[in-house]
Amino acid sequence: MVSITAAETTSRRVWRRFTGAQRTARFMVYLIIVAAIVAAAQTIEIIPEFLADAPEQIGDLLARMWPIDWRAYPTDVHSALSETIHIASLGTLLALMLALPVGLLAAHNLVPFTPLNLLARLILVSSRSVNSLVWALLFVGIFGPGALAGTLAIAFRSIGFVGKLFGEALEEAQPGPIEALAATGAPWRSVLTFGYWPQVKPAFWSIALFRFDINVRESAVLGLVGAGGIGMALDAALNLFQWERVALILVAILVVVIITEIVVTQIRKRML
């Protein structure tokens, strides 16, 4: 007869971190992921000849891009590049102006009226779920090709981002200073400027800088659908197979993106 001692029972006890239901849920997710990958890999249309040809084509591409056509910079690329930066900064400014009221309406501690909160949320969600290229298409349809469409596209895409984060910052504001101000009988404008604003100011500028950084990257692409900026120069160079010029434009975009990131990081370090 084998008698099981207490020590043996403890050593045989299996420690489990998750309950059975939790493990089932995780297993289901893994199963769905694997099924999705297998289904996607089997049904996607990939032409094997194209894949086999790829290294040669990449070599050809790089050979065509060299030497980079630096001389085109002052004549064609510079103005397009500065237009891109203008689109990004004007778009960000416009977005900040439009997002402030929407963000205020979305904060339920500031506007304790649920229908208005929901309306603001709806505006923010619809702004975010439309890609900036799609916004650009719509504005090109309305205003015609050019930087105006690009600026508005950047602005409308950014409203959701800025408004959402600004609204969340407002909701996290401490009620103490606000109640103190309200107790003195301060009008709502004073409560806003002296109660809320000092508390959300760092968050606001941080969001604005972060969005500007993103917008510089995005505004470089908008030209592909005709919304102005360096993307239009890129599109023209691509259509004419001027690969040396394409290389120049790519280098220009890369430099601007990296400089923007460095500047934004530095400003944020100084300010916050």
Binding site: E45, I46, I47, L51, D53, L61, R217, V221, L254, I258
Partner: peptide
């Protein structure tokens, strides 16, 4: 990270042809 996915896509379209790849 520095180039927008759509710009990277242009380069890959040249490298591996039009299509999902």
């Amino acid at each position: 990270r520095s180039l927008h996915p759509v710009i990277v896509a242009i380069l890959f379209v040249k490298a591996v042809g039009f299509g999902a790849l």
